[in-house]
């Protein structure tokens, strides 16, 4: 089929072989570490790690291209917004001012601001691929069992995995409905932006009804098979932790400690080259 976003992609790779719990812990530690730091050196190391992990997972760029490009766009818009609101934020942070271009009014271009925005973009470029990688290499039910294992109540964990499981189905519904609309001459993929936006709303109602129908059936099926009766449940798909998992967790813990130490040893989350 055409673009399947964010669904689980079955492959044989070291990343796929790890248990969901390892990947979840790894993902959480990795993102926390990256969220906290603005230290360019740390971000570059993390970025390198995320590229290596991507290669290891055998996921090809074109399989996740859509999401990556989509989020890249958002990151750029975000950076632009930051600049528009605070053109001198970098100066404030780094405590020096190297003007490259005077610009118009308050919109100056300083080396500090550019460096700050570069760090900002770098940060997202590290986190987003890892999040995508986590989603496409973790089997939805394994993901649920891992959430449950780290303490999330199983009903919530299962709901999350069910939502992930239905992403491809809802996408397929969306395409069918969009086609049905276009077949009646209601443009969804061309025409003016306003028209397209307005027509897209017409897809939501049928999508809602189809999804509600799905939810009703599946929740009945779950009830009839005893879901939610016990306080705990077991998981058919849970893998046992292997050596490779412990190695992976140890590596990620070390990486996190490294990142926190480098970030905070000088009492500042920013690396200052100025």
């Amino acid at each position: 089929m055409a673009v399947e976003m964010l669904g689980y992609i079955e492959k044989t790779s070291p990343i796929h072989r790890l248990t969901g719990t390892t990947k979840l812990i790894g993902f959480l530690l990795f993102t926390t570490a990256t969220m906290f730091t603005y230290d360019t050196r740390v971000l570059l190391v993390m970025g390198l790690v995320s590229i290596v992990l991507f290669r290891l997972s055998r996921i090809r760029f074109r399989e996740v291209r859509f999401v990556l490009i989509f989020t890249a766009l958002f990151v750029l818009i975000n950076a632009l917004a930051v600049y528009l609101f605070e053109p001198e934020q970098g100066v404030e942070i780094y405590g020096s001012r190297h003007v490259l271009l005077e610009g118009i009014g308050r919109f100056t271009v300083t080396a500090e601001q550019l460096f700050y925005l570069f760090n900002l973009i770098l940060k997202y470029s590290v986190i987003v691929p890892i999040a995508v990688l986590f989603l496409v290499t973790t089997h939805p039910t394994e993901f649920a069992s891992s959430l449950n294992r780290i303490g999330v109540p199983y009903k919530i964990a299962f709901a999350v995995s069910l939502a992930l499981r239905y992403i491809p189905d809802v996408q397929a519904d969306f395409r069918t409905i969009a086609n049905a609309q276009e077949a009646r001459g209601i443009a969804v993929s061309h025409g003016s932006l306003w028209q397209r936006a307005r027509n897209s709303i017409q897809i939501l109602l049928p999508l809602l009804f189809t999804s509600l129908e799905r939810i009703e059936t599946v929740s009945n099926a779950m009830d009839l098979r005893g879901f939610g009766a016990g306080r705990k449940r077991t998981w058919y798909n849970q893998k046992t932790m292997n050596q490779i998992d412990y190695v992976a967790i140890s590596c990620i813990v070390l990486l996190t400690i490294f990142s926190f130490v480098v970030t905070f040893y000088d009492g500042n989350r920013f690396y200052n080259p100025f």
């Binding site: 089997h139 039910t141 069910l162 099926a221 016990g230 705990k232 449940r233 058919y236 798909n237």
Partner: peptide, 22 residues
């Protein structure tokens, strides 16, 4: 519409999981 699991084995096991079978 009534499948809860992604694979056949997982779906068959669903009721057992709820009964907390090892």
């Amino acid at each position: 519409a009534q499948f809860v699991g992604l694979s056949v084995g997982e779906d068959i096991a669903f009721a057992l999981e709820n009964k907390q079978t090892e």
